[in-house]
């Protein structure tokens, strides 16, 4: 395990789940829930003769950024593609419940607590969604996590971090979309059906998953930023993600409502406008949408350094 100080400059993309969890909060403040020493392995994988992991591929815990308690959920893509099963799902749900319980307690016992003294949740997604080996329990976990998001709404901001190798796909793509704010690096990828699955189902003519440029300009952080699917785009370091969480942690919980993608009649209207635009435009490539958003030269914009991209990009207005 790298030291906290070296983790700050480390690539978020190349960091494992535990490094991300430790590095996203202040030095030495991370306390893990149900860590490797608790040996909570998946009973389903064991029955199937599949390799197990002591943390079931999800690191959960709590730390602090400044005065803010930050509850962290961090998925490990190298363990069965970051898939969510019964144990990992239960850890996610329990962490959310603990954060909500703390928020309730602070509201009751310390009604004058400042915005930066109230808890937030940060979820580092690296997953393809449900673990098919334990599909029913995994699906249920998705539903339970979404349920907790609804309970957390207006109490505890839930912040998504996406910048790991596997990206965030499958059912967990829906789950990420249901959080309050999404932070991505340009190497982060977010979607529902992943590139390989589209190719498998629809053929190489529809989507060539080996074409990395195509994959990134369809699911990558820059495209998601143009589309409004993510709120913030940051550099690929643990420290950059941490700095963005620190900024968000200062905000009142009411400020997060405007960052959401789903969850109100107005937002449904907005999403429907996007569907209508797609039907009208019939875009053949992400570049068509970038152009429509007002970016005259999408190819050049895709290739400039991140700071220049952020300074000049026009985002799609719906």
């Amino acid at each position: 395990m790298s030291k906290w100080s070296t983790l700050q400059d480390r690539s978020f993309l190349e960091s494992n789940a535990r490094e991300r969890a430790i590095g996203i909060v202040d030095e030495g403040t991370f306390t893990e829930f149900a860590g490797p020493l608790d040996r909570r392995t998946s009973p389903h994988l064991e029955t199937l003769g599949e390799a197990v992991e002591f943390d079931d591929g999800i690191v959960t815990g709590v730390g602090k950024i400044g005065k803010t308690p930050v509850f962290v959920i961090s998925q490990e893509g190298r363990f069965i593609g970051g898939s969510v099963g019964e144990v990992g799902g239960a850890k996610m749900v329990a962490t959310l419940k603990t954060a909500i319980a703390l928020a309730d307690r602070i509201a009751k016992e310390f009604p004058k607590a400042a915005d930066d003294e109230k808890p937030v949740v940060a979820i580092s997604f690296e997953t393809g969604g449900v673990r098919l080996h334990e599909a029913n329990a995994g699906l249920l976990a998705h539903a339970e996590v979404m349920d907790q998001f609804q309970r957390a709404r207006g109490k505890v901001p839930v912040i998504t971090l996406i910048g790991s190798k596997v990206g965030c796909f499958g059912g967990m793509g829906f789950v990420a979309a249901a959080t309050d704010a999404i932070v991505m690096s340009e190497f982060g990828r977010l979607g529902l059906t992943g590139p390989e699955v589209i190719e498998q189902e629809m053929g190489k003519d529809e989507f060539d998953s080996a074409d990395r440029a195509l994959v990134y300009r369809t699911t990558g952080g820059r495209h998601k930023y143009v589309m409004g699917d993510c709120n913030f785009i940051v550099a690929d370091t643990v420290g950059a993600f941490r700095a963005q969480v620190a900024e968000l942690a200062k905000l009142p919980v009411s400020a997060f409502e405007a960052m959401r993608r789903i969850g109100s009649a107005a937002l449904v209207e907005k999403q429907l406008k996007g569907v209508a635009l797609a039907a009208e435009m019939q875009p053949k490539d992400a570049r068509d949408v970038w152009k429509h958003a007002g970016n005259a030269d999408p190819v050049a914009l895709a290739n400039v350094p991140l700071d220049a991209f952020k300074a000049t990009v026009k985002r799609l207005a719906l």
Partner: peptide, 11 residues
């Protein structure tokens, strides 16, 4: 504790 149970790997 060290490692991740990736393919061809162990903790």
């Amino acid at each position: 504790h060290f490692g991740v149970v990736g393919s061809g790997d162990l903790e």
